[in-house]
Structure formats: C-alpha cells, structure tokens
C-alpha cells in the first residue's frame, strides 16, 4: 500500500482524542505523509459534538513535529481577516514554514448561528465576502520583506522602515490598514490551499482507520 501525500482528518473528535491525534500525526510524519488537514467543525446549530479549534491544535502539534505540513480547514465566517492572517502567520513562524489554510465552506449554517450571523452577516453575499477575506489575508502576509529585520543594536535600527508595508485595503466588507504585526517566516507565507490541492487526500474518520492507511 502506498502512503498518501495528504490525510484529511474527519469524524467525531471523541473517536480521536488529543493523544490519538498527536500519535497519528507523529506516525504520519515518520511514514512520509506530506500534509495533515484538520477539520474545524464547530458544534452543529442544534447543539452536540464539535471539534477543538484547528489552528490552536496546529500550534500544539507543530511543537511536537518537525517536517509535516499542518493545515486547518477553517471557515472565514467567524473571523476577521486581520486576526486570521495573523494567527496563520504566527503558526507558520513557529512551525518553521509548515502552516496552511484550507478555506472551509461547508457548515456555513452552523457557523452563521455561532458567530452572530443575525447581527453581522444578514444580507451579506457570503461568497463575495469570502473572496475579499482571502484577498486581505494574502495582502497582509506581504507586510514585511524577507530581509526587513536588521537588529542593529548600535545604530538603534530594529527593522528597515522601507521594508514594512501597509495594505490600505478598502473594500465592500473589510477595511484593513495593516501591516501585520507578525514577521513572515523564512519560506515566505503560509500555504493557502484550495480543494484542488487536496483532491488526492485520503479521508479518515478515526485513529484505527488512519493507522490502517499507514500500514500499521
């Protein structure tokens, strides 16, 4: 059996547990899997089981791995582009260039109910909002040139002013000046994945299924 490039974690969190998830990610890294995609399923609108926050799980898993790419399938509905761009940039820095974002579109009704949709999103074209959201996030990731930081203690110059860039985005849904207050990672920016990028991903619903895929 060949090892898949990408494993998409799915199913109920109760069937995984934190330890099980960490164990799987470690084994997948050893086996040569390139990317793990974590779900960010919020609890359904009528109550019930949800998943922990994918991006926080990534921070925790990143500290316990060294090569595997960790992506979160996160909806933009409950977030502001500045906050999400910042958290992803931070994850990319602390994982040394292994963080990714797959824009989630399923579960939109649940997200609407959880994130004050009635207050914030009534009458909003959500696809259009999402496109603008991604544009802002990508723009914010260009806030700092790779060689911006000079750390010149004698000359009191921490960074080169011309290497920091404001975004000054003014759109239909968002108005964001920037810059981001997180330095980019040496590899550039986090990965912004699309459905096509994970077309060959193998979806697993629990740890046993995942171990079987890895031939264990």
């Amino acid at each position: 059996m060949s090892i898949p490039k990408t494993i998409l974690i799915s199913g109920d969190f109760a069937d995984w547990t934190l330890e099980g998830l960490r164990d799987l990610v470690n084994r997948a890294e050893t086996a040569g899997v390139e990317t793990i995609v974590l779900p960010d399923g919020i609890a359904p609108a009528k109550g019930g089981e949800g998943w922990p926050d994918a991006l926080i799980l990534i921070g925790w898993l990143a500290a316990q791995t060294s090569r595997i790419r960790l992506a979160g399938m996160v909806s933009s509905l409950g977030h502001q582009p500045y906050n999400l761009a910042r958290r992803l940039a931070s994850l990319d820095l602390l994982s040394r260039g292994r963080a990714g974002w797959l824009v989630a579109t399923d579960g939109a009704d649940d997200a609407y109910a959880a994130f004050s949709g009635k207050v914030r999103l009534e009458g909003v074209d959500q696809e259009q909002r999402e496109r603008e959201f991604a544009t802002v996030v990508k723009g914010l990731w260009q806030s700092w040139d790779t060689d911006a930081l000079v750390f010149d203690k004698e000359g009191a110059q921490f960074f080169r002013p011309e290497a920091m860039h404001t975004l000054d985005h003014k759109g239909e849904h968002f108005s964001v000046r920037g810059p981001l207050n997180v330095m980019r990672s040496p590899r550039g920016t986090p990965d912004l994945l699309e459905e096509a990028d994970i077309a060959d991903a193998v979806t697993v619903d629990n740890r046993q299924a995942a171990l079987a895929i890895l031939g264990e």
Binding site: A43, P44, G47, G48, G50, P52, A113, S116, G117
Partner: peptide
C-alpha cells in the same frame, strides 16, 4: 447572537 455550545 449565539445559538449553540462549544461541544468540545
């Protein structure tokens, strides 16, 4: 307006 609990 928040409907559901976290469920985690």
């Amino acid at each position: 307006v928040v409907g559901q609990g976290l469920g985690i």
